[in-house]
Design a protein around this nucleic acid. Structure first.
Lengths: 230, 230
DNA sequence: CGATTGTTTGATCTCTCTCAATGGGCGTGG
DNA sequence: CCACGCCCATTGAGAGAGATCAAACAATCG
């Protein structure tokens, strides 16, 4: 029965989780899309090059974290958005000027989709359309919420917001435990929330001293148990 | 020949400008949508109330500026996004917690659309679908760009970015002149770019002293002639 | 196991926020 | 149409939060 499923899709989160795009496709559509797509594993700091993006401007994130980075003239870097499992990155509109770079922040799996077939399927299949649109609106909301966080003056508030953003994104996957995994490095987090790594470190330290959170030892992609501030 | 066009649509920007949503509809679709929609004029600081938004979570902006404001517990206000002519605000996903308030920043005209009919038309009509989808992606990009601007440390850079954002949004409408109209008040602008009105005022002053820009006298919704910094 | 990269801590500086006060524009009401 | 009042914009002086610089420590990767 599973013979219809393309090999590279069998273990993919996007296919096996019903709320994701590929799970909403018919077997034929899935097969059709699979043929013109490229399933790719990425290491940390691996970047999508521009030629690849002009051919495949649509990227579905299967696992890991993909960042959209903007690099300013003077070398400052900013992580404008974070994409995680289930997100469909659509860079077709952004083609004009500095759209930024797509860079993986850890080991990730992505599927680069053919825009032609993708668009046809979305037009044909109402279920797929719903999923894509819902995800896109989700991205708008997240980006707007992120703007609000960045506009907030206090560094501590930004960090708290980020922790809750992580919790919110993970709540659908994991059971409701008091642990939040921060899936990126301190430096990346700092660039995402628009502050310096040093300041971020001080905030973590302060939160831990007050007793609001507790940091796991390995600290690399560490976990935390926050109660509810703000 | 124009008898098929609903009265309230005849002079609406969304109908008369081909790049907008209503212009992509068939006469029948337009009529159908018009019946279940509410064309509304809004004054400055007028707010969409929650009941209205739960019935009509989709708002098309015909003219003016609509802001999405988030109010924090301690009273600080943040303008998270600005919507202008052609934008289709879709708040269906945002229903969970604090989605913020939709507030008009000047005299505006909006059309509140029925989600049911809207969704059906978008599913049926590929042209309409393209327009809506494109606008949604545009909103994602704008929100992301805005995040980048907010993350930038320098106040001057934020202001410069905003001026160019205005220019970019107006370029499709007006001829290429060196004038940019800032469609909102100083206070609103300050809340949008995440700084204080005082700081903003100082930035304008400095830009003018350097000779980069020139402010029109009436200053209310004033114009400016920027050359190209950054 | 060494080299490299990331994280933390400390001290100093600077930009922006805050508070306060003045002046100008616009809308309201006469 | 004019006068009043309110809100917004501007300017100034002071303080605080975060940025920056520098260096030690921890962790990862080959």
């Amino acid at each position: 029965m599973d013979n219809h499923t393309p090999l590279s899709c069998r273990h993919c989160e996007l296919f096996s989780n019903s709320s994701n795009f590929c799970a909403s496709l018919t077997p034929d559509e899935l097969k059709e899309l699979n043929i013109v797509s490229r399933f790719t594993k990425m290491k940390r700091s691996e970047t999508f090059n521009d030629e690849s993006l002009s051919i495949w401007p649509i990227v579905a994130v299967s696992s890991g974290v993909i960042s959209l980075q903007h690099i300013l003239e003077d070398g400052r870097k900013t992580i404008a958005a974070l994409f995680m499992t289930g997100d469909i990155i659509d860079l077709r509109n952004a083609s004009h000027k500095n759209r930024g770079n797509l860079i993986s922040l850890k080991k990730s799996e992505v599927c680069r989709l053919s825009p032609v077939v993708f668009e046809r399927i979305v037009t044909q299949n109402p279920d797929a359309q719903k999923v894509v649109w819902s995800n896109l609106r989700e991205q708008v909301n997240r980006a707007i919420d992120h703007s609000v966080d960045l506009a907030k003056k206090q560094a501590m508030e930004k960090l708290a917001s980020f922790i809750f953003e992580c919790k919110h994104r993970q709540s659908s996957l994991i059971a409701k435990k008091q642990t939040v995994t921060i899936p990126v490095r301190r430096i990346d987090l700092a660039e995402y929330v628009g502050m310096q790594p040093e300041t971020l470190s001080r905030c973590f330290k302060e939160l831990e001293e007050i007793g609001i959170i507790e940091l796991k030892k390995p600290l690399l992609f560490g976990d935390q148990q926050p109660s509810s501030p703000s």
